[in-house]
Simulated scan of single mutants.
Amino acid sequence: MRYFRRVRGPRRPISPPSVTPCRLAGDEFVVLLPQTDLDNARTVADRLQRRLGDLRTADGSPVRAGIGVAAGPDLDHR
Rank of each mutant, 00 (worst) to 15 (best):
M1R: 07
M1E: 10
R2G: 07
Y3Q: 13
F4G: 03
F4I: 05
R5T: 12
V7G: 00
R8C: 12
R8Y: 12
P10G: 03
R11Q: 03
R12N: 03
P13H: 00
P13I: 01
I14L: 15
P17K: 05
P17F: 00
P17W: 00
S18R: 06
S18I: 10
S18N: 11
V19Q: 12
P21M: 04
C22E: 15
C22K: 12
C22T: 10
R23Q: 14
R23T: 12
L24N: 05
A25N: 05
E28Q: 11
E28C: 10
E28P: 07
V30F: 02
V31N: 05
L32A: 15
L33E: 13
L33P: 09
P34Y: 09
T36Q: 04
L38Q: 12
D39Q: 08
N40P: 02
N40L: 09
R42L: 11
T43G: 07
T43K: 13
T43P: 02
V44L: 05
V44Q: 03
R47E: 02
L48D: 01
L48G: 07
Q49C: 10
R50H: 13
R50F: 09
R51E: 15
R51P: 06
R51C: 11
R51T: 05
L52K: 04
L52M: 09
L52E: 06
L52T: 08
G53W: 06
G53L: 13
D54Y: 08
L55V: 08
L55W: 08
R56H: 14
R56T: 14
R56M: 07
T57W: 02
A58S: 02
A58T: 10
S61R: 15
P62T: 13
P62V: 14
V63M: 05
V63P: 03
R64S: 14
A65D: 02
G66R: 08
G68L: 05
V69G: 08
G72P: 00
P73Y: 01
D74N: 15
L75D: 10
D76P: 00
H77M: 11
H77D: 14
H77G: 10
H77E: 14
R78D: 07
R78H: 14
